[in-house]
Amino acid sequence: MDENIIQKSQMRNKVIKYFLLIVLIAFLGYKSVYFRKLDDVKAASSSKAFNATTFARNFYDNKLLLRADSAVDLGALISLLRSEPGQAFNKYSNALAIGNIRYFLVRGEGRITSIGDYATAIELAGQSVKTNINIATEFVYGNAIRDASGLLKLNDFSNTADFNSISENINSIVRNEVLPGFVAKSKPGIGVKFAGAIELNEKYLAIDSIEVIPIRISVLD
């Protein structure tokens, strides 16, 4: 009888011990694991991250347009590229990468000669030799505008992805704010005034197929 009582008492103690142990483990587990919505985590991390949209907007409004005012005249640049290409590249081109690809910030005026699927052809005004160029209306992508300005340096940014996202946002401004008005008013014979970026391969120079990625463009007539 006494043995039964002792056994029951030991059993009860064991149950209490295990119960307390389970409560303790549950308490520690609850305190060491917590759940947050993935959206909240992403939002928190992006708020600390580089804001390329704001940066690109400020850069475009306050620096790029000002720099474009003092860009080289495209007609004069083409003449120099024909006569002394080395001097033209040394004096007016910018590039962050080593190699043959270099960028120029240019401005000019001309008259629309034709409208294509991807670009609008323009004959430059005031040229002794007839000079045609294209204004890109479809493919405004890549780093041409950013790098042509010569205003930004890769090593001022912590990573390449942030740096490339600046270009994506500048290009987006051009595609959404600059081009629609121009495309709507474009027709052959109309005068235009523009500023933009061009990309040229220094080794394989193709002056006859210059395409300007516009930063600013307006119709004159």
Partner: peptide, 10 residues
């Protein structure tokens, strides 16, 4: 030295 030096791709 420049921390990163890109090389153009054609």
């Amino acid at each position: 030295f420049a921390t990163k030096m890109p090389v153009a791709v054609e």
